[in-house]
Simulated scan of single mutants.
Amino acid sequence: MSTPAATPAAPFPALPVCGVAIPATGLITAAVAYARAHTSPSTVNHCLRSAAFALVFARKLPPYAGADAEAVVLACLLHDLGWAVGESRALLSADKRFEVDGANLARAFAREHSEYSEAQLQEVWDAIALHTTPSIALHKQPVVALTALGILADFTGPYHPAGAISVAEFQEVVGAFPRLAFRDELPRTLCGLCRDKPGTTFDNFVGEFGAALLEGEEGDAYREQREKNSARNLLLGGLDAVKQYE
Rank of each mutant, 00 (worst) to 15 (best):
126 D>S: 15
214 L>T: 14
190 L>I: 11
136 I>R: 14
169 E>I: 03
177 F>N: 01
184 D>N: 10
207 G>Q: 03
58 A>W: 00
14 A>S: 15
198 P>H: 10
9 A>R: 15
242 V>C: 07
20 V>S: 01
44 V>W: 05
76 C>N: 12
138 L>Y: 15
61 L>S: 12
141 Q>D: 12
245 Y>I: 12
192 G>L: 04
192 G>V: 10
78 L>W: 02
168 A>D: 13
78 L>S: 05
184 D>Y: 02
23 P>D: 04
182 F>I: 08
128 I>P: 05
131 H>Q: 14
60 K>A: 11
171 Q>F: 08
146 L>K: 06
228 K>P: 00
48 L>R: 13
157 G>L: 00
12 F>R: 10
94 A>S: 14
50 S>E: 02
244 Q>R: 07
240 D>C: 12
50 S>Y: 08
188 R>K: 14
161 P>M: 02
34 Y>L: 05
41 P>S: 03
160 H>C: 00
115 E>G: 12
212 A>W: 10
196 D>L: 09
193 L>T: 04
162 A>N: 08
164 A>D: 08
121 L>D: 13
183 R>C: 10
92 L>P: 01
25 T>C: 04
46 H>C: 09
125 W>C: 11
178 P>M: 12
93 S>D: 03
50 S>K: 00
134 P>A: 06
244 Q>E: 08
220 D>T: 14
209 F>N: 09
11 P>A: 11
123 E>Y: 08
58 A>M: 04
195 R>C: 07
144 V>E: 09
135 S>R: 14
149 L>R: 13
230 S>P: 01
69 A>F: 09
217 E>Q: 13
184 D>T: 11
65 A>E: 06
233 N>I: 05
7 T>H: 13
71 A>M: 15
133 T>C: 08
103 A>P: 05
172 E>R: 03
117 S>C: 08
102 G>I: 11
140 K>Q: 13
81 L>K: 01
3 T>F: 01
10 A>I: 10
68 D>N: 15
8 P>S: 10
24 A>T: 06
136 I>E: 14
218 E>K: 14
163 G>K: 05
161 P>T: 05
119 A>W: 07
204 N>P: 06
156 T>A: 01
39 T>F: 02
205 F>T: 14
117 S>R: 01
17 V>N: 06
179 R>K: 11
2 S>Q: 12
93 S>K: 04
157 G>P: 00
64 Y>T: 03
65 A>H: 07
139 H>D: 14
168 A>H: 04
191 C>P: 03
110 A>V: 01
28 I>K: 04
23 P>N: 05
35 A>M: 04
194 C>A: 11
94 A>I: 02
145 A>K: 02
181 A>F: 08
197 K>W: 11
200 T>F: 03
99 E>W: 01
70 E>S: 12
22 I>L: 15
178 P>S: 04
59 R>P: 03
1 M>F: 11
176 A>K: 06
147 T>M: 00
192 G>E: 12
204 N>S: 07
81 L>E: 03
50 S>W: 08
163 G>N: 06
